[in-house]
């Protein structure tokens, strides 16, 4: 038996899985910007029946603005994401980098959707061009869009001028994650760090963003998202002061 041509559905699936594998490869950050083209093909393959629920791409983006997703379902999904990733990495640094990459892909979408919604609702939509307002935007707007609550604090590093921190006392994403003692440096909030990195990139503030556990006695899940800005951002901020 021979199959001259694979079923179109299968070819779509395989091409999309190929390109997602590409995204996970450590080839470099530039690869993250290309998105798989599979979904558009997929829509033409599925012949919609009459009375069929509209495709997710055809639904109104504003309709789901106030709707919420199940935190429990997401917790299980995130748990699987971490387990899946953990099987394919060599160490903690590698695991954090991969979670960051996955978060980056979410972040680009969160950012696009947030801007789109702001544009349609406010009379004066604007784009932040200074760093501190951009950081505030992430602290409140992005956090609310992604996690349903603003972050708890923003701090500036005393030692390094290019480092800023966003602090969440109890990140909803990793609330149920207990890292074993032998991996204590691991922070699964690297996923959130990826979201922040994507939004900063989108706003034009390239930076390296990492996540660190900074527990206190009363807040065992406290997490710090550390933003290390690239030099060109600081130089531009300096130039804009005059």
């Amino acid at each position: 038996m021979s199959y001259p041509q694979p079923h179109p559905r299968f070819s779509v699936l395989s091409s999309s899985s190929l390109s997602s594998a590409e995204h996970l490869s450590p080839a470099g950050s530039s690869a993250r910007f290309s998105l798989p083209s599979a979904p558009s093909i997929n829509t033409s393959v599925n012949t919609p029946k009459p009375g069929f629920r509209p495709n997710i791409y055809d639904r109104n983006l504003n309709k789901s603005r106030t709707s919420e997703v199940s935190a429990a379902a997401f917790a299980f999904l995130f748990s699987e994401v971490v387990q899946y990733t953990q099987k394919r990495v060599t160490g903690i640094a590698d695991l954090e980098r991969r979670l960051n990459t996955l978060g980056y892909r979410v972040g680009t979408r969160v950012f696009e959707l947030m801007i789109w919604r702001n544009e349609s609702s406010s009379k004066m939509p604007k784009r932040e061009i200074r760093f501190l307002p951009a950081l505030m935007l992430i602290h409140t707007q992005v956090w609310k869009a992604a996690f349903g609550k603003p972050a708890d604090a923003i701090e500036k590093s005393v030692e390094n001028a290019d480092e800023y921190m966003i602090i969440d006392n109890d990140p909803p994403l990793t609330r149920n994650v207990s890292v074993p003692r032998d991996m204590s440096q691991l922070s699964c909030s690297s996923f959130s760090a990826g979201i922040v990195e994507a939004v900063l990139d989108g706003l034009g503030f390239p930076a390296r963003v990492t996540a660190h556990n900074t527990p206190t006695d009363t807040l065992p899940n406290r997490t710090t998202i550390l933003i290390k800005l690239e030099r060109l951002v600081l130089e531009r901020e300096e130039a804009m002061k005059q």
């Binding site: 429990a72 917790a75 065992p220």
Partner: peptide, 23 residues
């Protein structure tokens, strides 16, 4: 259900070693 089953570092049917569950 929260602290054990949603923890990616727990193996089902194995002893529970989770700070979150203890807490």
């Amino acid at each position: 259900a929260d602290a054990v089953m949603k923890n990616p570092f727990h193996t089902p049917e194995m002893p529970i070693r989770s700070d979150g569950f203890d807490r």
